[in-house]
Computed example of a mutant assay.
Amino acid sequence: MGMELRVLMVMAMVIALTSVGSAASGTATYYTAPYVPSSCYGYEDEGTMIAAASDAVWNNGAACGTYYTVTCTGPTNQGVTQPCYNTSVTIKIVDYCPSGCQGTLDLSQEAFSTIADLNAGKIYIDYY
């Protein structure tokens, strides 16, 4: 194998491992409309690809406006068949999910249904 090809392969592996290594893991649930008011934007409509952040992400409101790419990685309930779709969704943090929140991210119903079957209710996710 030529040196250039080896260098390209090593670079591709490093990039792939870096992107996987930088993802955080957690859980996601979903909530339904109306999506206003929100903690970050009041009555301003921010669309439907949005989420509320739990204490793990909220950071005293610094998470407002942050975009995350979210991927379903599996079911949280035993006995549930694979709820994940082979896709990701990009969401914007617009709200706070108070203490006792059931997920790391509480996605809008539209965002959740992009990555998983709504019947799952709660899923494991990676987000970055």
Rank of each mutant, 00 (worst) to 15 (best):
I123D: 01
E110K: 08
K92E: 15
D95S: 14
Y124W: 14
N59F: 07
Y127P: 01
Y31T: 04
S54K: 15
K92M: 15
T69A: 05
C72N: 04
A33M: 06
A33T: 05
M9P: 00
G103S: 11
P83A: 10
M9T: 01
Y30M: 11
C101E: 07
T27D: 08
S22E: 09
N60F: 14
V20A: 13
K92W: 10
N86P: 00
S99E: 15
C72I: 03
N59H: 13
V80K: 02
T81E: 08
S22R: 12
E46H: 15
S108D: 09
K122M: 09
S39F: 10
D45P: 07
I93A: 04
C64I: 14
Y85G: 00
Y96E: 07
E4G: 07
E44L: 13
P37Q: 08
V94Q: 04
T32Y: 12
L17N: 07
C84A: 14
Y128V: 04
T73Y: 06
G61H: 13
A62M: 15
N60C: 14
A116N: 08
S19Q: 12
A53T: 13
A111H: 04
L8E: 08
S25H: 08
G42F: 06
Y41M: 08
S99V: 15
Y67D: 10
T29P: 03
P75V: 02
M11F: 05
L17F: 05
Y31A: 06
M49A: 10
T114D: 11
T71I: 13
Y43S: 08
P34Q: 05
F112K: 02
T76I: 02
M13C: 07
T18V: 15
T29I: 11
K122Q: 13
Q82W: 00
A23S: 13
A51I: 09
A116I: 07
Y68M: 11
C84E: 09
P98W: 06
G74L: 03
T71H: 05
G2Y: 01
P83K: 04
V14S: 04
M13F: 09
D55K: 14
A12F: 09
F112Y: 11
G26R: 02
A33S: 14
A120W: 01
T90V: 14
A33C: 02
Y68D: 03
T18G: 13
L5M: 03
R6H: 03
Y31M: 07
Y67F: 12
V57I: 15
M1A: 02
V89A: 13
G100S: 03
T27K: 09
W58E: 10
D106E: 05
T81H: 08
Y96T: 01
G65W: 11
S38W: 10
N86V: 09
G100Y: 06
N59L: 13
L17A: 09
T81P: 00
L8C: 04
L5Y: 05
V70N: 00
Q82C: 03
E4T: 00
Y43P: 00
Y68G: 06
I15W: 08
T76V: 08
